[in-house]
Structure formats: structure tokens, C-alpha cells
């Protein structure tokens, strides 16, 4: 019940309650029941958040974009019936035209089909890696920052050591330990790339989380909760995390795009995703030598990447606002 210590707002949430029949929100009901004290507590943080989110245009737009992207990743056939692997070298690097909206890439493949089909691998790599580092980094950072002392010293120095390992070195080791062969299924390759990027990528999240936790744990409401005898776990999850999440969300939403591009670097080095897997990153890195001659090779996959990052940045913004107890 973090709202108990947050100041009342000018537009108090209770005023909004009557506008919305409770029955429409299945998820909120479920959560209340799960909470077991629905009668005593009129609102939960998550319930409030969800209600806020549904009215936030930022959230609605970003959610719509993400739904489209997910559909693209899941069923690319909905968007194009062109075969992304039917390539004719004679079409190499032809600019956009009526027959190929996005033009052709170096191998003479249809860029539109390849961009649509590339969504799956790119979004999987970006989202899974980001989720992974956000969770691992947040846990490490929160524990280190909250406990301080020896625990902090141990975890922070461990973070330092992981930070020191060059990304390339770590990725080569991970990907060389589990080499891909001709018949390795695509999901395995994607999993390995996620692991290679994630295993060293969580350190900055850990640091960011630790820094805000150090600041937040001094706050009155945390001290108050502790004084009231709340358990560590409860304090961390209920009071510290919601107030310390902002920097991690900001970082994660941007780094998602960086991971998609980094995946390309790995592919470029021959250790990341490989044909026949299609990804935006591979397309972007292939465009590298032809920026002057064929900018469309960079433009289209780059634009899709931008829109994806935009959607996640907006989503992150909206979610953070919704969960911010200070807004209650």
C-alpha cells in the first residue's frame, strides 16, 4: 500500500472510480481476488496503473504499434506474400519501384519482404535480451543498493568484473561454445545470440538500479514501512522498486534498439544470426558499404527499427507514469 504515504493529488483517483464498471476489467478483478483482501483495500497499485494506462493515448498508440509488430513477427504472411528468400542477383541494389516498394538488397532479394520477415528475429532478440538484462540487473542492483555494506561490495565488484569483459570476447566465447551447424534450428541460434548479448549486458542496469535504490531507501516512506515492521522483500517490491524503476525503464527501452543493431555486428563477425534467418540487423550491416550508392538498403530496416524503439520508449514512459506512486 504505497499510496498511503504518497501525497494526495489534485485529481484524486477515487473521483474516477464510478466512471468505470469494475466488471469490464477482468485482470484487475483477478488480482484483487488473488490479493485476498479486496474488501479492505479498494485499489491496488497494479489496478490503478492499468486503469490509467487504458486512458493514456501514449499507451494506446504504442500498444497498437507493438500489436502490429508482433503480428508481423508471428504471421509475416499477413503483410506480404513475396518470398524473402527468392533472390535474383540481376536485381541487386535496385532502388524502390512499383514492383518492389522498398527496392532490392545486395543479393537482389525484395527488401519489403525481407523487412517484414526480419521482424521476428530482430524483435525476439531485442525484447528477450532487454527483458533478461532488466530483470537480472534490477535484482542485483536492488539487493546491492538496499543492503549496502558487504553485500553491496561483493555484488558491485562482481558487476565491475563482468563489465570489464569486452562484449566481443564474451560473445565469441558463448557462441563458439555452442557452434551453429547447417541444421541448427533458428530458435536455438536466436537463443544463443540473446545469451551472448545478455550475459555481459546487465551491468549498467545493475548500477542504475543500485544508484536509485540508494537514494530511494533514504525516503521517509521506506523508513516508515521499515519502522512498521514490513519485510525486506515487501519493502523492496512495494516501496523501493516502483520509485526506483524510472532510470531502468528509460535505459531498457533505448538499449532494446541497440541490441537489435548489436546483433547485426555479431552476424557480421560470423557468430550471430546467419542465413537463412532474416533480421533487420543483418540488413543494416549489409548496407554498410553502399550508403552512398543505395541508401534505401539502410533506410527501410532502419525505419522499422526506429518505429519499434519509439513504440517501446512510449510504452515505457506510459507504464512508468502509471506505476509512479507519486502520481497517486
Amino acid at each position: 500500500m504505497s499510496s498511503s504515504v504518497a501525497p494526495d493529488q489534485l485529481a484524486p483517483p477515487p473521483a474516477r472510480v464510478p466512471e468505470r464498471p469494475a466488471g469490464r476489467n477482468g485482470r484487475r478483478r483477478g488480482r484483487r481476488r488473488g490479493g485476498g483482501h479486496a474488501a479492505a483495500v479498494p485499489r491496488s497499485l497494479a489496478g490503478d496503473a492499468w486503469r490509467d494506462l487504458r486512458r493514456n493515448p501514449l499507451f494506446l498508440i504504442s500498444a497498437a504499434i507493438i500489436v502490429v509488430l508482433v503480428a508481423m513477427a508471428a504471421v509475416p504472411g499477413l503483410f506480404t506474400d513475396a518470398d524473402p528468400r527468392a533472390c535474383d542477383l540481376a536485381n541487386s541494389r535496385l532502388p524502390p519501384s512499383g514492383s518492389a516498394w522498398f527496392g532490392y538488397d545486395l543479393q537482389g532479394c525484395d527488401m519489403y519482404a525481407r523487412t517484414i520477415h526480419g521482424a521476428r528475429a530482430s524483435i525476439l532478440v531485442g525484447v528477450l535480451t532487454t527483458l533478461g538484462i532488466a530483470v537480472v540487473g534490477s535484482v542485483v542492483g536492488m539487493v546491492a543498493g538496499y543492503h549496502g555494506g558487504r553485500v553491496d561490495a561483493l555484488l558491485s565488484r562482481l558487476t565491475d568484473m563482468f563489465f570489464a569483459v569486452p562484449m566481443l570476447l564474451g560473445a565469441i566465447i558463448v557462441l563458439a561454445t555452442f557452434p551453429s551447424r547447417v541444421d541448427t534450428p533458428a530458435w536455438q541460434t536466436i537463443g544463443k545470440v540473446v545469451l551472448a548479448l545478455g550475459v555481459l549486458g546487465w551491468t549498467t542496469v545493475a548500477r542504475l538500479m543500485r544508484s536509485t535504490v540508494i537514494q530511494v531507501k533514504q525516503a521517509d516512506y521506506v523508513q516508515a514501512a521499515r519502522g512498521l515492521g514490513a519485510g525486506t522483500r515487501r519493502i523492496l517490491l512495494r516501496h523501493v522498486l516502483p520509485n526506483a524503476l524510472a532510470p531502468v525503464v528509460v535505459y531498457s527501452t533505448i538499449i532494446l534498439g541497440v541490441f537489435v543493431v548489436l546483433e547485426a555486428t555479431l552476424s557480421f563477425l560470423g557468430i550471430g544470426l546467419q542465413a537463412p534467418v532474416i533480421s533487420w540487423g543483418i540488413a543494416i550491416s549489409e548496407a554498410r558499404s553502399y550508403i552512398r550508392q543505395s541508401p534505401h538498403m539502410l533506410l527501410f530496416p532502419g525505419a522499422f527499427l526506429s518505429v519499434t524503439v519509439l513504440a517501446f520508449i512510449m510504452l515505457g514512459d506510459a507504464v512508468r507514469d502509471a506505476f509512479d506512486p507519486r502520481l497517486r
Binding site: F163, A164, P166, T203, R207, T212, I214, Q215, P247, Y251
Partner: peptide, 21 residues
């Protein structure tokens, strides 16, 4: 001033990243 803690943290981490990366 109160917003700077994560920024300082990020810049510190970035310093190392830029040195070697």
C-alpha cells in the same frame, strides 16, 4: 539536482564503455 544520480551513474559506466568500446 535530485535527478542527477542515475545520470552520474550512467556517465560513470559509460566512461568505461567508451574507453574500451
Amino acid at each position: 539536482r535530485n535527478s542527477l544520480i542515475p545520470v552520474v551513474t550512467f556517465v560513470g559506466a559509460d566512461f568505461g564503455g567508451l574507453l574500451g568500446g
